[in-house]
Every structure is written in C-alpha cells, then in structure tokens.
Design a binder for these strands. Structure first.
Lengths: 110, 110
DNA sequence: TAATCATATTAGTTTATGCTAATATTACTT
DNA sequence: AAGTAATATTAGCATAAACTAATATGATTA
C-alpha cells in the first residue's frame, strides 16, 4: 500500500495524531477511535497493522500490551513527492516575480 | 472529497506532476496518462474534475481546449496536517536531544 | 449549417478497501 | 494449569471509488 493511500483514511490519520504526541497502547487507541468513529477493536487493529507495514508506526511490547509510537520513515515518500512538485511551481513563481521586477524597473506598472 | 483522498490516486498524482511543470491541455494529459496507465479519455476527464473541485487545479479556456495548471490551494490542508503532526514529534526529539546533552554534561556516556 | 474536434457528463459495472464477527495468539494472574 | 486480559488474524460482506461505453456540450472548420 502506497504512503498516500495510508494517509487517505481518517482513522489512520487520527491514530497518527495520537501516537505523534506520545506512545499509546493499542487499547488506548481503540478507546479513542471507537468513541469517535464507532468501529471495532478488530478494525483498529487492522489499521495499526497497515501503519506498521508501511513504516508509519513502530511497536514496542510491554507485557500483553503493544505500545505504538510514530515512525517518521513512512512520511519520506510523501515529503519527497511534495517537495519535488513544489520545486517546479516555486521556480515558476520565481520566474513570475522576476518578470514583475523587470516590469517595475522599466516603469510599466505593477 | 478529502485532500488526502485526492492524492491517493496515482493518475491524479501523475497529472499534478505534469501540470506543476507547465500548463497542459486536457488532451495532452490524456495522451500521457493513456500511455502510462491505459485508461480512457473519460476516466482522465473525471480525474481532472476532481482536481478542479478540490482546489488542486485551475482551468483556462482556450477555444475548445481546456488548459490546466496547478493550484497550490489544494495542498494547504495537507501541509497544515503534516506540519501539525511534525510539531509534536519535533518537540519530542528536542526533548530527547536535551536529555542526551544532560547525560553528556553529567559524564554518564553518550 | 453540417461536420468535426476537444472535452465533459452520465449510467452502469467492477474492484479495492474497510468493516464485523468469530477465532487465534500471547501474556498475565490466581 | 485454568482463567482472563490485551491484541492480532481471518473470512466474508458492504460500499465507495475508478473505470468503460455511450452520449452530450461547446468550439472550430468547411
């Protein structure tokens, strides 16, 4: 599953919000998400698996509990793609700015 | 449709790559996407509509042609969400760094 | 104005993904 | 060891979203 597919789900985004603040046990995430989205423990667990498999979350065992924390790795592809895209339109804007400056210097208004 | 949903489709991402570099007529986008993904003009047109409706693309009429260019507006939600998330784990990392520094000063290893 | 080109829209089908229900696994407690 | 708690997994169902085929719209050309 693609990094953008991962982020396209609201439950997964909410989960990432939670574990980006501090480590959360699976059960804690289930409680919040169950309350806000009305879905089952099973559903949450399946989302957690996706977050693990795609490098968005790391797990630590604490007895029977599993503690999830954010893993920045998953965001690398997203960042790279967004940055690459922005490089183009940033350079386009720069060209526009240059054009405007040129206009100003030759006294042709803003 | 959510901004992340928009970006979760590979055809839409490819389209955004194209129009971030320079304006493209609908037909040009269809050609590229048809070659790379093997989908119809209709499908591409439907994707273009989504990009318009969600603030990722702007259109200019040029006779019968429609010229698409990137609209940064659509990325605002994405940026905001990512930034917000990062603020948390950045501050966590900062705390960690501080902790490490403290260890160093009190001579307890790296 | 008829024909054609460029693009958009609609209806209906297919498919991927998210969900539930049930069950399995693993660890802790008594 | 049995019972319980915490979490994961699996199978099957439901639905949203992507696609095709057909058609509509709007601009250009003959």
């Amino acid at each position: 599953m693609n990094a953008f597919d991962v982020l396209s789900d609201p439950v997964r985004r909410r989960t990432l919000e939670l574990i980006s603040q501090r480590e959360h046990a699976s059960g804690e995430i289930v409680k919040v998400v169950e309350a806000e989205f009305g879905i089952s423990q099973s559903a949450v667990s399946q989302h957690l698996r996706i977050l693990r498999d795609t490098g968005f979350a790391k797990v630590r065992r604490d007895g029977a509990k599993r503690c999830y924390e954010i893993d920045p790795t998953g965001f690398d592809d997203v960042d790279e793609w967004l940055d690459q895209l922005r490089r183009f339109w940033a350079s386009k804007m720069e060209a526009l700015t240059t054009e405007i400056e040129r206009g100003k210097r030759s006294g042709k208004g803003t």
